[in-house]
Design a protein around this nucleic acid. Structure first.
Length: 271
DNA sequence: CAACGGACCTGCCTGC
DNA sequence: TGCAGGCAGGTCCGTT
């Protein structure tokens, strides 16, 4: 479920309970995530203080007073804040117990997520080393997208979903951003002008920023990783709307598969 | 190097 | 009601 806005919302949700707190204990019930949780992770994190929590791409980066953690939500991961008495349910794979009180509980039915312990700076972990531009930071420009795109020949939708180019654009927001930018998802990335790339960079930024703003309606105990309530259905212009009228021109929205992923677009507005 | 397809998992929905 | 099949918002890895 989580794309970048969901990850950002998750971080804002758990930060108040994590930052500045000391991890008293980690309780792990299922180690088989995308990569198995290290057998000594409990002993590594016990007694460590959380000094900060941020994000790189869709990875959640937890900085401890010594070392850190890297968490990914995969397709179905979520955190919630629960009372220590609350029984874990199916797929609640691990808990972080802190001296602040509530338990930070991770759930992930599909187990595509991960929990990695780092001896050193988690921000320098090798998993993060090949990630591309952050779409909400200053270096993210149409000019850079254009330059990188010249040597490639994939559809633009595939291109913007490539995390070595730009991070955080998942399947939903790829379709949405291309609609806002008026670019066909199948157009080859090497056949797009700088001007249109400028438009695209702005569109990606706006779509992601808007979603993050809408993620603010969070229940106290549930840190919005489920994606159901809120903006999900409401604000999408094309995703999941095949056959329905385009909001701009009323032409029916089309869907097709690009690189094994469902893609939605308006054939009239997007060229 | 770039592109592509398969792999990892469970849950939920559809249609027979 | 049961079951098979398809689909889901992410990434990594091996092969071409």
């Amino acid at each position: 479920m989580p794309e970048l806005p969901e990850v950002a919302t998750t971080i804002s949700g758990i930060r108040p309970y994590l930052e500045g707190a000391v991890i008293v204990r980690a309780e792990i019930r299922e180690r088989r995530l995308r990569w198995p949780i290290a057998s000594d992770l409990e002993q590594r994190v016990a007694g460590r203080k959380v000094v900060g929590i941020n994000r790189r791409g869709k990875y959640i980066v937890v900085h401890l007073d010594r070392g850190g953690l890297l968490v990914h939500l995969g397709m179905s991961g979520s955190f919630r804040i629960v009372d220590p008495q609350t029984r874990p349910e199916k797929h609640d794979h691990f808990d972080l117990l802190t001296d602040a009180g509530p338990v930070i509980r991770y759930r992930d039915p599909r187990r595509f997520g991960c929990l990695i312990h780092c001896e050193g700076d988690p921000g320098s972990h090798e998993r993060l080393s090949r990630l591309g531009m952050e779409p909400l930071e200053d270096g993210f420009t149409g000019a850079r997208l254009y330059r990188l795109g010249r040597t490639r020949n994939v559809p633009i939708k595939t291109y913007i979903m490539d995390s070595s180019v730009v991070v955080g654009v998942g399947n939903i927001y790829a379709s949405e951003s291309l609609f806002v930018a008026g670019i066909s998802p199948v157009r080859r990335c090497s056949r797009i002008s700088i001007a249109r790339y400028d438009m695209l960079a702005l569109s990606i930024r706006r779509v992601l920023t808007d979603s993050i703003a809408k993620g603010g309606t969070t229940l106290q105990d549930f840190v919005r990783a489920d994606g159901r309530p809120g903006y999900f259905d409401q604000e999408l212009s094309v995703y999941g709307r095949a056959g329905e009228p385009c909001l701009a021109c009323s032409h029916p929205i089309k869907s097709r598969i690009i690189a094994q992923r469902a893609t939605y677009y308006c054939p009239q507005c997007q060229t």
